[in-house]
C-alpha cells in the first residue's frame, strides 16, 4: 500500500532565517518526485517534514492523506523508508541485522528472512552479504543495502536525501537501475533530494526546482526544459547539458 505525500503552504524558519516559504508539493501514490536545488535551498528541510524530523512552523503536511501532526512521530516514521547520503547503516551491525531494523521495530515475524528478501530485491545475495559489516561493502553496495533497509518492512513511501551523490559514476548507474526496478516492483511513493539534474531527470516523474526556500518551478523534465519558468531553471538545464548530461529525451 503506497502512501501519497502532500505539503501545502509549508513555511519554516530556523531562528530568524526562512528555510521554506509557502511551499506546496504533491507526490501521488506510486510516483517519484525529485527536489532539485543548491545547498540551502530548503529541499532537505521539506523532505524531513514528512517524517517529522522537522516540524514546520506553518502549513499542512499529509502522509497518505493523514495530517502528520496528529500522528505519533515514531509510528509515522516506521511507515516511511529513509535513505541518507552515507547510507546511515549502523557500522557495528551486520548487513542482515541492519536491514531487519524496521521489521524488528514494527514487530514482524522471522525478520531474518524478511531482511534476506529485501537484500535479494536490491541485488545483494544474502548468503554473501548478510553477515558482513557495512565497512566490508563498497559504497554502491552500502547504498543498496540502505535502500533494502528502507523498504524491508514494506513501507508505503520512501524519502531519499542525496542517496547516490557520493558514488562513482558506475556505482551510481547501477544504483539507479536498482532503484527503478524496486520502485516499480513495489509501487512505492518516493521523494528524492538531489542536486544532480540528470539524476532527477532519470529517476523522477516530476522535478521540483527549489531556490532559497521557494518552489521555482515544478513539472516533468520536458516541461521544465521546454518552458523554464525562470532564468534560474534555464541556467540549471544549460549547465547540466554543457556538462554532457542526456536529459530525459524519452
Amino acid at each position: 500500500m503506497s502512501l501519497s505525500l502532500d505539503a501545502t503552504e509549508v513555511s519554516h524558519r530556523y531562528g530568524g532565517v526562512a528555510a521554506l516559504t509557502r511551499v506546496s508539493v504533491r507526490v501521488a501514490e506510486g510516483s517519484v518526485v525529485a527536489l532539485v536545488g543548491e545547498t540551502g535551498s530548503g529541499k532537505t528541510t521539506l523532505l524531513r517534514s514528512f517524517n517529522r524530523l522537522v516540524d514546520p512552523s506553518e502549513g499542512t503536511v499529509l502522509v497518505g492523506g493523514e495530517d502528520v501532526r496528529l500522528l505519533d512521530p515514531v509510528v509515522l516514521r516506521r511507515r516511511i523508508g529513509y535513505v541518507p547520503q552515507n547510507g546511515g547503516l549502523l557500522p557495528h551491525w551486520t548487513i542482515r541485522r541492519n536491514v531487519a531494523l524496521v521489521p524488528r521495530l514494527v514487530g514482524m515475524e522471522d525478520i531474518g528472512h524478511v531482511a534476506d528478501v529485501a537484500l535479494q530485491r536490491v541485488g545483494l545475495d544474502p548468503r554473501a552479504f548478510g553477515e558482513r559489516l557495512p565497512r566490508e561493502l563498497s559504497g554502491g553496495q552500502r547504498q543498496r543495502a540502505a535502500l533494502a533497509r528502507a523498504l524491508a518492512a514494506k513501507q508505503g513511501a520512501i524519502l531519499l536525501d542525496e542517496p547516490f551523490g557520493a558514488l562513482d559514476a558506475i556505482s551510481r548507474s547501477e544504483a539507479h537501475e536498482v532503484f527503478e526496478r524496486v520502485r516499480h516492483e513495489l509501487g512505492v511513493t518516493a521523494m528524492l533530494v538531489t542536486h544532480d539534474l540528470a539524476e532527477a531527470a532519470r529517476l523522477a516523474d516530476t522535478i521540483v526546482v527549489m531556490r532559497a526556500g521557494v518552489v521555482e518551478q515544478a513539472g516533468s523534465v520536458d516541461v521544465l526544459r521546454g518552458a523554464p519558468a525562470s532564468a534560474y531553471v534555464r541556467m540549471l538545464f544549460d549547465r547540466a547539458e554543457a556538462a554532457g548530461a542526456a536529459l530525459g529525451v524519452g
Binding site: N51, L53, G87
Partner: peptide, 23 residues
Amino acid sequence: ADIDAVDACEAMGATATQRLMWV
C-alpha cells in the same frame, strides 16, 4: 557517535531509548 547512523535510526522510528541502547 556516528551521527548518520543515529539520524537514520531516528528517521525510521527507533525510539530515543532504542537509539541509545543500539547505537
